[in-house]
Amino acid sequence: MKFAITPCPNDTFAFFALISKIGKNLDFEFERHDIETLNEFAFEAKYPITKLSFPAYLANRDKYELLDAGAALGIGTGPVLVARRGWSGGKVAVPGLNTTAALLYRFYAGKDAEIFPMLFSDILPAFSRNEIDAGVLIHEGRFVYKDYGLELVEDLGDYWTKKTGLPVPLGCICVRKDFAHLKSAIDDEIRKSVKYSFGHFDETLPLVRHYAQHLQEDVLHSHIVAFVNEFTYDISKIKDSLISNLLLK
Rank of each mutant, 00 (worst) to 15 (best):
A102M: 02
V153N: 04
N25E: 15
L119C: 09
Y196I: 08
L103V: 13
S20V: 05
R85C: 07
L170A: 11
S193Q: 14
S20E: 15
A71T: 04
S128R: 13
I224S: 00
C8N: 13
F198W: 15
G149Q: 08
T12D: 08
N10G: 11
P125K: 13
L66Y: 01
V136L: 08
S121P: 03
D178Q: 11
N229V: 07
P167T: 02
G23D: 14
D188T: 10
E65N: 10
P48S: 12
Y159T: 00
Y148Q: 05
D11R: 06
A59E: 14
T100A: 07
P125L: 12
V82M: 09
V92P: 05
L137P: 11
S241I: 00
I75T: 04
Y211G: 13
K111L: 12
W87S: 11
I190Q: 09
L182R: 02
K177R: 15
F28V: 12
V136G: 03
D218T: 12
A14M: 12
M1L: 12
E36G: 01
K177Q: 08
R209H: 08
L215E: 14
V194F: 03
H214I: 13
L248A: 15
V194M: 10
E154H: 02
G157F: 00
R176G: 06
E31M: 14
D112A: 11
E40G: 01
V168D: 01
F231A: 05
G110I: 07
A69K: 06
G90W: 05
R176D: 06
W160P: 07
R209P: 03
K163Q: 13
F107A: 05
E151R: 10
F43I: 02
V194N: 09
M118V: 06
Y47L: 08
N25V: 13
K177L: 12
D202S: 15
D187F: 01
A134Y: 02
A109T: 01
A17C: 13
F143W: 07
Y47P: 09
V228P: 02
L170T: 03
F15I: 09
I132N: 02
Y64A: 11
Y233A: 10
G74E: 04
A45G: 13
K239D: 14
Y159H: 11
L205G: 03
V92R: 06
H221S: 10
L152A: 08
M1S: 14
V175T: 03
R85F: 03
K24L: 14
A109P: 07
L247K: 15
L67V: 08
A83R: 09
L124M: 03
H139R: 11
I35W: 00
K237L: 15
A113F: 00
K192S: 15
V153S: 03
E114K: 14
D155G: 04
D158N: 09
V153G: 01
A212S: 15
K91H: 01
H223P: 03
F30V: 09
P55C: 06
K111W: 00
S236D: 10
A17T: 10
F201W: 12
P79G: 05
Y105P: 04
Y211A: 10
R176P: 05
E189D: 14
P95D: 09
A71L: 07
A69H: 06
Y196S: 12
C172Q: 01
L182W: 00
C174L: 05
